[in-house]
Amino acid sequence: MTALIQMFSYHFMQRALIVGVLVSLCAALLGVSLVLKRYSMIGDGLSHVGFGALAVASALNLAPLAVAVPVVVLAAILLLRLRQSAAVKGDAAIAMISSSALAIGVISLSLSTGMNTEVSSYLFGSVLSLSRGDAVFSILLSLAVIALFVLFYPRIFAVTFDENFSRATGTKAELFNTLLAVLTAITVVLGMRMMGALLISSLIIFPALSAMRICRSFKAVVLVSACISVLCFLTGLLASYFLETPTGASIVIADLLAYGICRLAGRK
């Protein structure tokens, strides 16, 4: 218990806790729709774009989040457009964009600061990287993501389940697809400081997949995946503090274990 109190007496741990819980919630909520709409890879692609944007921002000495959020939001909208056009197949487009962004990021980092620990913190995440300003920004944005998701829940469900039907009954499906992509972009950028570019997509995909194993309704899947996501985040954070393992990777392992448990529990 005293160890726990001591752990959260560090300011960076308090920040990591609050931001982490909120980002995990956002990721889980959006993840359900993304997985069901077969958009999982978009999260992965966006995280690489986020890495590129953060690297360029730090090379140019700009505020990292203020640069990365708009860039990744634009990339999200672009990816969605590409998916609908037949010129380049969706998954190929994502692979193309994400590896290019990764390359741009690595080059701009090596030109400015040299390949150092910063690269590793971008790729694999670090709880130390959240400044006070970042934390406030992250809290506000993630609250906005959660609020938008809750307010548009009936419409998001309808568009996820059956785009054609909702379009036929006068719902602007493109608008809600774009909304989903934009919210995902924001979540990815917020989460990747802690989780790292290579691990953030698991935060989106795992809780949804776990919840889908054991739940029968959409609402239950959303709620359970939110709980799983937050629980796994906390487990991972504690494990990383006490076992001195990297935070992002610990959270992913917690998510993997949760998936295994749900898989077993869901088998009848």
Binding site: D162, F165, A168, C215, S217, F218, K219
Partner: peptide, 27 residues
């Protein structure tokens, strides 16, 4: 009232009957 052809996505979609029917009231 539109009844579209089913897509592959819907066949493994976790949603209760009530949730699907209710979404018809969207308009």
């Amino acid at each position: 009232g539109y009844l579209p052809q089913q897509t592959q996505v819907q066949r493994d979609f976790p949603a209760s009957v009530y949730e699907v029917v209710l979404s018809g009231c969207l308009n």
